[in-house]
Every structure is written in structure tokens, then in C-alpha cells.
Design a binder for these strands. Structure first.
Length: 569
RNA sequence: CGGGGUGUGGCGCAGCGGCUAGCGCGCAUGGUUUGGGACCAUGAGGUCGGUGGUUCAAAUCCACUCACCCCGACCA
């Protein structure tokens, strides 16, 4: 490609609305352009990167036995109502109305459509397992798009769906996908780590995410110092240290004027926070809920949401608490009626705790569960933190940040049951297909690659996904020798199948070098009167400082070999 | 949706009651240059986000509205 003809130019300054790192670099490099909030165009250079990622993904999906198909973005809303996921997706689902006043959804994912397809085409266990996938645009009306390509409303996703005869089959398909995903990240030159994850609106049970570690990542990862345990912080578990057992004492009132926060309470009474009972209130799908946890721990809202099986969970406001008898700052489960109470299992790991009294400036000492209060649901709703103990080995947990670049789910049978994706087993018994689903956001992967691969000059693409491999950079284009050699090299390299971006512009060396660095092409080849004096051209890796002179007649084979060794061509 | 912020040529910004709306980059033409974002000359390009109001006069003040960005609840 000749740079002079390339659509999309490099910018010295990033657009003001590009805040995030990858967004700024991709915009400055002329690889993407924003159309509206969370909606982007890929310009030719960015699209080449995307296509390379896509190709790697497609190869791995095919190799794992996936069959590619293409489902529509436009989906009848009835399908979403049939599975009950219209509610689960809520406002994130784009809904539109056609001229017949019929409601349609723009597909945010395709479980409904693919399961309906399987319902119609699969009748026998002999047709399973089945791995169906597509690479296609998804639409999600995100509450807040952000970070350029990292979180958008229209995005390109590879989504694969597995259908198996039983759980064991699902397990196999799942493992196949996990290793296919690991191959994909490795081949893209992006080291992603697998972590346990919450399954969110997609539903289902087991789930793992693939994370690319980056300071700027939106997600927190909790992993173990000693073993391989790693989980998204919203899912992570830990060992809760039990307190030494004590004889339960009678409940006692204590005056605590103005003391509301746990830390203040502990200081005021000169006890450890773990000897207190923390009570916070939420509105769960607009119903007030009292959430209880031992004072030294924090509530994990994702876990609460799962335990309560509710869609929307938010901190309660004064208005939500009206008529419940709860007094903010001195809230207590003791003597409370008519309010749903959820508790973390840590409340069983201590005795004689200090709790609120539901009266201003008063707390209760020696509160014990279940002697003094009841709860509706009890389970793990605690937030894991760095320093907590690993649930597997007990070693210390560590926190890191990452960008989610893939997510796999074991769905089970709830969708196949609802949509009738049944098959007859070898005994003639009708059974629902056991499903899994597996997604990678390609644009996100592209942006994450930039977040992870850049320096102060610009992007440093891993070779397998670089838009071009070689930046051919003639200096002094008014010199006929230079242009002759450069033209020659360009056709020579191109004929060998190498991907060359030929900077044939009449620009100063500074401009060209800076653009080369900004675009992040792995290899730079400079031709100038100076290099021609020794009948050679200069070679430089984007990520290295040193340069090297290579004789003219060796350049093509040399570049070919170099890239070959790097695993390309 | 709650909180904060920004809308002025393609990009980055200045102007915040006064006359013909500026500057840098980029773009066009010509010339001189050029191993890490050169210089000179000439030139093109703007309904100042929109609507309504106040005023002799509005980019500038007021109201409403739209768009976009950032921080929080959601996800590939």
C-alpha cells in the first residue's frame, strides 16, 4: 500500500473526546473514527488489524470443529420474551418497531436465534455435539460506552454455541473452547489469563473470562500468590477467618451517640471490626433488602444480586427505607419485620457481635445468629480483597487489573428447554441439548492489544496482528536513485507476499519516522542517499533502538527470513 | 439514570456584550529545504451545536434543547 493513497491520515493531536490510551493512539494513527457515542468506523489500517484477528479466531474455531454460519441482527422480540431474557437484558436490548408495529430486537447475542435453529434442525443425539459460530456485529445499548473501542454499543463479536447430549459432553466442548481461546491469544501475541467469572445476564453456571492484564483495565482480578486460583473480583471467593468461639451473652444496649460507621464504632467500643455486624440496605428490583455481613468484610453486590436472583440492585435511598423501621447508621436485623434479609455466611463465624438497634445513637452488644434474628437467605456475598486467604490453598490473594477479552459460559439446559431444542437419545428419550456459549469481542481485543503494546511514540503491534509488516521509508524522494531503489524494493517485497506500507510521500524524515512509530509497523526499512552509498538499506525493529545496514541484493530474502522466523508469512 | 465537564474551519485551542471571529497544526499553489514532526510567500476553508429570548447590538447574557466526554451502577 502506498501511504500517499491511504485513506485516513495520522494526527499530531488526538481528538479532544478521545481520553483513553488506546482510543487516542488508534484515533491519531487514523485507524478508527468515532461516529457517535460507542459507535465507530474502522478505517483501512484499523480494519486490516481487525481482519487479522478475525482470521486467527476463525482458524481456531474451525480447528476446534466449529461450523461457521451467519444469523441475523434483526430478531423477533418474541424469542426474547420466550426465554425471559428480555427482562434480564433490560434497557441494554435495542428494541425497534417495524412498519407493521411489530417489535424487533437488534441482537446483543444469539442464544435465542441459534437455539431456535437447533430446535428445528436437530432431532437425534447422533447430530450432537454441535459447535456453531459466527463473526458478526452485536448491539447493546450500554448505559455508558467508554474508552474508545473498549466498550461500545455496536461491536464485532465471535460467538460460538455448543450443543451436547449431556454435562460430560458440555465439559468436553467447554475445554475445547478454552484451549482454542488460549491458542487465539497466544497467536495474537497477547498473553491473556483465564479467571473464574460471574455469568451475569447471559445466565448459566460455570463461566470463565480471559483477561489481558493492563493498568487501565476495568476489571479487578483476584489471584493467588501460591496456587493457580484466579477469579474476577466480582466472583472471587476466599477463606473467612473464624473468630475464637465464645459463650453467647445476653443482649445489651449501649449508647453510641453519633457513631455510625463501622470503623468509628470499633474505635468507640475498642473492639475489632470483625466483632461488629454490618447492615446495609439495598433496593432489589425496587424491594428493600437488608444485607448483613461481618463488620470487617465488604458486600459484593454481584453476589447479592445472584443470591437474590434480582436484576437491578442499588443502594437504598431514604425513600426506600420509609416504613421499614430501619434507622440509617443504626440499622439492625434484630426485631425487624417485613423486610427481606440477606446475610453473608461470615455472620456465623463470630459471636457476641455489636449490631445497630434501629434507634438513633444506640447499638446492641452480644448479638448472635440465629438466636437474636432470622434471615431469609444466607450465602457467600463477601467481596474478596488482596490479603485475604486463597479459597484453595490459604495463601495470600493478590489483586490486579485487566481487560476482559473473552468470556465462556456453561449454560446448561434452561434455554434449550424454553425453546424446545430437544433431541432423542439412544433410548428414544427426549432430552434438552446441554448448551455452552463462548464470546470474543474483536474490537475490544484490538484496543486491549494497544493498551498493552505501546510506548511514548505510538503503537507497537505484535507482528501477527500488525496492519503491515514492513514500513518502507525512502528519504529524499527528489533523489531519483532513492525512488528507483524504493520502487524496486516495494514491488520485490510485495511480490514475495510481504505486507508493505510504502511511505512514498514527499515528507521530511522526521515526519515519516514519527508516523512509522505511531502506526507501530514492526519493521522499518529506510532508503536514503546515505544508505545507497554503501549499496544498502537500513533495517530497524519498531521496539528496538539499534539499526542495521543490509546490502540491497539481500534485503528481500533477509526480510522474508526475518518475518518467517517471527512466525509470519 | 445520578454527579461533573465540553460544544467556535478537518484536528487542537483562544475570544466570554462591540465593529470584518483569531492562533497553531493540517490542506492548496510556488519556491528553498530535509536522518526524528523544516521554512518563506500566496491562498481556500467558519449557519460560533440547535431553538427561543434579552439588547440599538449576541460566539459572548438568559432559558430550553441536542450532542459528546469523564466519575459511578452494567459487559465481548
Amino acid at each position: 500500500m502506498r501511504f500517499s493513497k491511504l485513506f485516513g491520515k495520522t494526527l499530531r493531536q488526538a481528538p479532544a473526546d478521545a481520553e483513553g490510551l488506546s482510543h487516542q493512539l488508534l484515533a491519531r494513527a487514523g485507524m478508527i473514527a468515532q461516529v457517535s457515542a460507542g459507535v465507530y468506523s474502522y478505517l483501512p489500517l484499523g480494519w486490516r488489524v481487525l481482519r487479522k484477528i478475525e482470521r486467527i479466531i476463525r482458524e481456531e474455531m474451525d480447528r476446534a470443529g466449529g461450523q461457521e454460519l451467519m444469523m441475523p441482527s434483526l430478531q423477533p422480540l418474541e424469542l426474547w420474551e420466550a426465554t425471559g431474557r428480555r427482562q434480564a437484558f433490560g434497557k441494554t436490548l435495542f428494541v425497534l418497531r417495524d412498519r407493521r408495529e411489530h417489535d424487533l430486537a437488534l441482537g446483543p447475542t444469539h442464544e435465542e436465534v441459534v437455539t431456535d435453529l437447533v430446535h428445528r434442525y436437530v432431532q437425534s443425539y447422533r447430530e450432537l455435539p454441535l459447535l456453531l459460530y459466527q463473526i458478526q456485529n452485536k448491539f447493546r445499548d450500554e448505559p455508558r460506552p467508554r474508552g474508545g473501542l473498549l466498550r461500545v454499543r455496536e461491536f464485532i463479536m465471535k460467538d460460538l454455541y455448543s450443543f451436547d447430549v449431556d454435562e460430560a459432553g458440555l465439559e468436553q466442548s467447554y475445554q475445547k473452547m478454552v484451549s482454542a481461546y488460549q491458542n487465539i491469544y497466544r497467536r495474537c501475541g497477547l498473553p491473556a489469563v483465564k479467571v473464574e467469572a460471574d455469568s451475569g445476564a447471559i445466565g448459566g453456571k460455570d463461566s470463565h473470562e480471559f483477561m489481558l492484564l493492563a493498568e487501565t483495565g476495568e476489571d479487578e482480578i483476584i489471584h493467588c500468590r501460591g496456587c493457580t486460583y484466579a477469579a474476577n473480583a466480582e466472583k472471587a471467593e476466599f477463606r473467612k477467618a473464624p473468630l475464637p468461639p465464645e459463650e453467647p451473652l445476653p443482649v445489651e444496649e449501649v449508647s453510641t451517640p453519633g457513631v455510625t460507621a463501622i470503623a468509628d464504632l470499633a474505635r468507640f467500643l475498642d473492639i475489632s471490626p470483625s466483632k461488629t455486624l454490618k447492615a446495609v440496605f439495598y433496593a432489589a428490583d425496587s424491594t428493600p433488602a437488608l444485607v448483613l455481613i461481618r463488620g470487617d468484610l465488604d458486600v459484593n453486590e454481584t453476589k447479592v444480586r445472584n443470591l437474590l436472583k434480582c436484576n437491578e440492585l442499588r443502594m437504598a435511598t431514604e425513600a426506600d427505607l420509609k416504613g421499614t423501621g430501619i434507622v440509617a447508621g443504626f440499622a439492625s436485623p434484630v426485631g425487624l419485620k417485613g423486610v427481606k434479609a440477606v446475610a453473608d455466611d461470615s455472620i456465623c463465624l463470630g459471636s457476641n457481635l455489636v449490631a445497630g438497634a434501629n434507634r438513633p445513637d444506640t447499638h446492641l452488644k452480644n448479638v448472635n445468629y440465629p438466636r437474636d434474628f432470622k434471615v431469609d437467605v444466607i450465602g457467600d456475598i463477601a467481596q474478596a480483597r488482596a490479603g485475604h486467604q486463597c479459597p484453595r490453598c490459604g495463601d495470600a490473594l493478590i489483586s490486579a487489573r485487566g481487560i476482559e477479552v473473552g468470556h465462556v459460559f456453561k449454560l446448561g439446559t434452561f434455554l434449550s428447554e424454553k425453546l424446545g431444542a430437544m433431541f432423542l437419545d439412544e433410548n428414544g428419550v427426549s432430552r434438552p441439548a446441554v448448551m455452552g456459549c463462548y464470546g470474543i469481542g474483536l474490537g475490544r481485543l484490538l484496543a486491549a492489544a494497544v493498551e498493552q503494546n505501546h510506548d511514548d511514540k505510538g503503537i507497537t503491534w505484535p507482528i501477527p496482528i500488525a496492519p503491515y509488516h514492513i514500513y518502507l521509508c525512502p528519504l529524499y524522494t527528489d533523489n531519483p536513485d532513492v525512488t528507483a531503489v524504493a520502487d524496486d524494493l516495494y514491488s520485490g517485497l510485495t511480490n514475495e507476499g510481504l505486507e508493505v506500507l510504502f511511505d512514498d510521500r514527499d515528507e521530511s524524515p522526521g515526519v515519516k519516522f514519527n508516523d512509522a512509530d505511531l502506526l507501530g509497523i514492526p519493521l522499518r526499512t529506510t532508503v536514503s542517499p546515505r544508505t545507497l552509498k554503501s549499496k544498502s538499506v537500513e533495517l530497524k525493529w519498531r521496539t528496538r533502538k539499534e539499526t542495521e545496514l543490509v546490502p540491497l541484493d539481500e534485503v528481500v530474502t533477509r526480510l522474508k527470513d526475518t518475518l518467517h522466523k517471527a512466525g509470519q508469512c
